[in-house]
């Protein structure tokens, strides 16, 4: 499967954009703002049983940043590349399979999500967080990036304009960022809302990043993320395979 050139192209473009300071700042501005405002400001007044608010918030922000960065990079890249710059058409006319395109885009999204997570993690640790890192944490983080990068493939391929991508972000990504346990525990929400929230993937990522262990509940969350991820990957492959102008 010839995914490497697709991945490499995205990484080169990412590298070029990293050199622009404004780009990095704008991409990471929101989570950094949350970390400083909520973690240091509001955090002193919020009590989470058994932990400090900063330790509670940091995994949530890492989950949120990995989600938004992996998703946005892929969704915007495909929308703009397909509709505006028409660079996506180069892949369609080259002898590469739809699977290779999805894998290349997805891995680039993962790289981007992990990069954003690392910055938040380092900043959180510098601010005094005592976050525990283990294999489950890393695995959940990678799965989260992959799942939302695959969702980005679907949205990027189905959007008919840049506004479509933004609409999808506003109606799905933003609510998830706020309600899936990023800033406050889910179990304090009304019963019915909890049921809905527990069906959303970011809730499971937040759970896994906060309590990274190999318990049955953690494995269940891991399974949910994997199922969502596989569903998005398969759907993305089908959409690209059927692509026709």
């Amino acid at each position: 499967m010839n995914w490497f050139p697709i991945f490499y192209r995205e990484i080169l473009l990412f590298q070029r954009r990293l050199l622009r300071l404004g780009y990095v700042v704008s991409a990471l501005f929101a989570p950094l703002l949350y970390l400083l405002a909520f973690g240091l400001g509001l955090g002193k007044r919020v009590a989470i049983p058994g932990t400090s608010y900063l330790d509670y918030l940091l995994p949530g922000l890492i989950a949120m940043s990995s989600m938004t960065n992996a998703y946005t990079w892929v969704a915007n890249g495909l929308t703009v590349g397909r509709l505006h710059f028409r660079t996506f058409q180069v892949y369609v006319q080259a002898p590469v399979t739809a699977t290779a395109i999805v894998v290349g885009e997805l891995l680039a999204g993962v790289a981007r999500g992990l990069f954003a997570s690392l910055i938040i993690l380092v900043l959180g640790l510098l601010l005094g967080s005592r976050l525990q890192l283990n294999l489950m944490f890393v695995l959940a983080l990678i799965l989260n990036c992959a799942l939302f990068a695959a969702l980005g493939v679907i949205v990027g391929m189905r959007s008919r304009s840049h506004e479509d991508t933004a609409t999808f972000t506003n109606f799905l990504i933003m609510p998830m960022a706020f309600f899936c346990g990023t800033f406050f525990p889910v179990n304090e929400m009304p019963w019915l809302v909890q049921v809905i929230i527990n069906c959303l993937p970011l809730t499971h990522t937040n759970h896994l990043l906060r309590f990274p262990a190999w318990t049955l509940a953690d494995l269940g969350s891991l399974l949910v993320l994997t199922a969502y991820g596989l569903f998005c990957i398969v759907l993305g492959i089908i959409i690209i395979r059927r692509y026709s102008e």
Partner: peptide, 30 residues
Amino acid sequence: KRLIGVCPQEINLDKELTAYENLWIYGRLY
């Protein structure tokens, strides 16, 4: 696809990349 080369109407090169990089990525696709 292995038999054809396509030069579209719009210039769909990666303008943030160098000429060499553009050709390298395309060559790797093949």
